[in-house]
Design a protein around this nucleic acid. Structure first.
Length: 492
RNA sequence: GCCCUCAUCGUCUAGAGGCCUAGGACGCCGCCCUUUCAAGGCGGAGAUCAGGGGUUCGAAUCCCCUUGAGGGCGCCA
């Protein structure tokens, strides 16, 4: 690869970091890592109405959580890191950076003031639609005379600055993912560079900044393909070198439409809250639109950074599959050691309002008992609840199916005796005693194990039985079994 | 309406003219392990490579058309 690879992620702070945005950030990050380039974070807050400081913070938080650290750009503490700052467009605007280039283009006749109002534009579009013409701006203000301008100014109209698009020829580029892409200039339109408020628009600010920040590769979503010829013409008008472009495919929801809120969780923050690991999100997102030649699924730490390439990127859109995401999270969760898993699960138990002081054994032991069950961290409370209270919630179905067996009463009353006289209340001795009880009473193991499990945990399914009983402790286990005796429908 | 893009199992994908009677992964089904649920192991179903034309000795792979899907046509980004 060429030297001085510089890429950027340029989110607009109008909400949480979306899963699609996170993927764009990830691909830029991976590309930079792969080629030892520089990853820049630029804040594109030129939407005065929707941008917010809060959103900037959310984006920083999500990026940090995912481990997508940037080498240059706006930093969470408000500073600007790097030699091409500031990296916040509103700040750049206030320094007159955009104005300077807009003025230059106007002076050179490559851009012009347009006095059309929003309402007028709207009417023009409606009329065009009615007449089955493309709804593009027809260049009404392209050649305004000084008198006309003066007249508009007197009316108090605030002009915008439009780029004067070439009338003929074609604009094409060799997209790193899509190969040759080309547009006829006559279909392009005189886009607005500077709004009436003096703020730059996306298409304008983006080009100015990518150039000034020496961005070598613009890696962004497919939805920007039609903006690209506009931007390329701007580069040309300015006489600037055009960067490489790579357009990533979109992420679709299960119904085939663009992933959005109605498909469920879409922000990185929501996935974090649900209990997905950042490693999972990174890995899964990487596989959405990219793959290795051997279709590798799980990547160890650092592997993505090493194996990523634009060549492996898919042109067609990918459907987001929450089921596979969960499977993958389970894979990552199972690799965690006791301590790490426990630290991650604890907040969920706290939030569920559990009495964490109730269990007599270390919490990390309890948590680890079910380690291969978790798909997302938020499932932990329901899996472990019976460890944290005097009387477990009894699952009606389990009670019905297990305690209605003729042998249940005998088993539970008998085993309660066995357990209470057990000197060493440990997994091994509990198991031995339980098996012996079954044998002595000519019962199948299952006939004994099942009712005991339900009696002790309230559920038909759960952790390995004897370890679970040990962790509950003798008193607790015996009490629960005794209490369950009364639930047996056949009393003999 | 116009422009652009895309098209391999339900889903993510491998595949860059013969290695493909199309491979992997998720999900699904079955078996094994097992006190349960998982996890794990093994096996299975599942794609005439959207359809139709070409090119070629030979096409999932190249070309054209059709169809379908997505994106854009904002003083949003």
């Amino acid at each position: 690869m060429e030297k001085n690879i510089r890429v950027r992620f340029a989110p607009s702070p109008t909400g949480h970091l979306h899963i699609g945005g996170a993927r764009t950030a990830l691909f830029n990050y991976l590309f930079a890592k792969k080629y030892s380039g520089t990853f820049v974070l630029r804040i594109e807050d030129t939407d005065e109405l929707r941008s917010s400081q809060e959103s900037v913070k959310w984006i920083f938080d999500s990026m940090a959580w995912l481990g997508l650290n940037w080498d240059e750009g706006a930093m969470p503490d408000g500073t600007q890191k790097g030699n091409f700052g500031p990296y916040v467009q509103s700040v750049r605007e206030s320094q007159g950076i955009y104005k300077q280039y807009a003025d230059k283009l106007v002076k050179e006749g490559k851009a012009y003031y347009c006095y059309c109002t929003a309402q007028e534009l709207d009417e023009m579009r409606k009329k065009a639609a009615l007449e089955k013409r493309p709804p593009k701006y027809e260049g009404r203000c392209r050649n305004l005379t000084a008198e006309e301008k003066e007249k508009f100014e007197k009316e108090g109209r605030k002009p915008v600055i439009r780029f004067r698009m070439p009338d003929d020829g074609t604009t094409s580029w060799n997209d790193l993912i899509h190969k040759e892409l080309s547009f006829e200039n006559k279909l392009l339109y005189d886009f607005i560079m500077v709004k009436a408020s003096g703020y730059p628009t996306y298409n304008f600010a983006c080009v100015i900044d990518d150039y000034l920040m020496k961005i070598s590769h613009v890696i962004r979503g497919d939805d920007h393909i039609s903006n690209t010829p506009l931007q390329i013409n701007l580069y040309k008008a300015l006489g600037w070198e055009i960067p490489q472009f790579a357009h990533l495919s979109m992420i679709l929801g299960p119904d085939g439409s663009r992933l959005s809120k109605r498909h469920g969780a879409t922000s990185v923050q929501e996935y974090k809250k649900e209990g997905f690991l950042p490693e999972t999100i990174k890995n899964y997102l990487a596989l959405l639109g990219w793959s290795t030649q051997d279709s590798q699924q799980i990547f160890e730490k650092g592997e993505l950074e090493e194996k990523f390439s634009l060549e492996g990127c898919q042109k067609n859109p990918a459907t987001f599959d929450p089921v596979k995401l969960k499977w993958m999270n389970g894979e990552y969760l199972r690799k965690l050691d006791k301590k790490t898993l426990s630290d991650l699960v604890l907040p969920y138990l706290k939030e569920a309002g559990f009495d964490l002081s109730y269990p007599k054994v270390p919490l990390e032991e309890l948590i680890y008992l079910e380690y291969e069950k978790y798909k997302v961290l938020s499932e932990a409370p329901s899996l472990l609840s019976f460890f944290f209270k005097e009387n477990p919630d009894m699952d009606a179905e389990a009670v019905q199916s297990v305690f209605s067996k003729p042998s249940a009463y005998k088993v539970l009353s008998g085993i309660a005796e066995v357990y209470s006289s057990l000197p060493n209340f440990e997994e091994k001795s509990i198991e031995e005693a339980t098996r012996k009880f079954a044998k002595d009473n000519s019962l199948k193991n299952g006939e004994v194990f099942h009712p005991v499990r339900v009696a002790v945990s309230g559920k038909a399914q759960g952790p390995t039985l004897f370890k679970m009983i040990e962790y509950l402790g003798k008193d607790c286990a015996v009490n629960r079994i005794k209490a369950a005796v009364s639930l047996c429908s056949v009393n003999k």
